Simulated scan of single mutants.
Amino acid sequence: MAIRQIQSILRAHPTSDGDGVKIQRVHGFENAAFSPFLMLDELKSDQAADYVGGFPPHPHRGIETLTYMLKGHFQHQDHMGNRGELKDGGAQWMSAGKGVIHSEMPVMTDGQLHGFQIWINLPARKKMQPAQYHDFQSDVIAEKQLSRNNLIRVIAGDLTIEGDTVTGPLQETGVPTTIADWQTTAGGQLNSCLNPDFQAMLYVYQGAIEIDGRTANAGELVILDAGEGLSVTATQDTGMLLLSGLPIHEPVVHYGPFVMNSIDEIEQAIHDYQTGTLTD
């Protein structure tokens, strides 16, 4: 079984979004090796001023988002009438499809916030489908204890580890994906099988990992090459997201909250939003 190696490492960079929320971002809108993922934002602060403004009502078209919280609460509301509170250890998935208008506002918990939002592309045939939303609290996230202080949490798709398949609660995504959170102390190992047709990335949010002698540190995203096996060792107490999915071999045109396949489609999305017909 071919073990995946490190193809490249990208460093997250500081930016802000919404009402001044400070985040660390890695994006790959023009990077085919990222597909089907588009962007990963890490939100981490113990200062309320860094995130208290949240993300007031805003539109999307052509993408899905997966938000996962380690610490802190976010309240979601959208034009469809959905209202959900994302709590510690939980996740929420939204498929914008043809259009959604939603807000994500923080609910204070001890002043701390640490979470992630992942943008996932939709294939052209699904970009104009009706919007959808589901949330998943911590108790339904699938977990497997690999060894003492070595835990994998599978949020989306299936992950095969040591002969066992761990199935996450999120299965109906626009393209097949596997998304998991690995938490371990120094010396912990993750050995798993990945779908060889999937592209895969690892985002280190705490500590450091080693793959075949190469190291990646907190705040770095590792793009892996092709293969079926994954073998990772934590060189420090570590937290890491695994993102794996079937690539979409289509043009990507991005403008703000809209991701489509052509400039004409972007202009139509802007027109629809300005005229109040984005969600019709």
Rank of each mutant, 00 (worst) to 15 (best):
M1N: 12
L10C: 01
R11L: 07
H13G: 13
D17K: 08
V26K: 04
L40M: 07
D41E: 09
L43V: 15
S45K: 03
P56N: 10
H58P: 00
H58C: 02
G62F: 01
Y68V: 13
F74M: 15
H76C: 13
H76F: 15
H79G: 06
E85S: 01
L86A: 03
G89N: 07
A91I: 09
M94I: 13
M94E: 02
M105C: 03
Q112I: 10
H114I: 02
H114L: 12
Q117M: 12
I118M: 14
I118D: 05
W119K: 08
P123A: 03
P123D: 06
A124Q: 14
R125M: 10
R125G: 08
K127Q: 10
K127D: 00
M128S: 10
P130C: 06
Y133A: 01
H134K: 14
H134D: 11
H134A: 14
D135W: 07
F136L: 11
V140I: 13
E143T: 14
K144D: 01
L146K: 11
S147V: 03
R148W: 06
R148M: 07
V154C: 07
D164Y: 01
D164M: 09
V166H: 05
Q171F: 07
E172I: 05
T173L: 11
G174S: 14
D181I: 05
G187H: 03
L194M: 04
D197F: 04
F198M: 04
F198K: 03
A200F: 13
A200Q: 06
L202A: 09
T215A: 00
G219W: 02
E220Q: 15
V222Y: 09
I223K: 05
L224H: 06
A226K: 04
S231G: 03
I248L: 07
V252D: 03
P257H: 11
M260H: 06
N261K: 02
S262Q: 04
E265V: 05
E267M: 12
H271E: 12
Y273R: 04
G276Q: 08
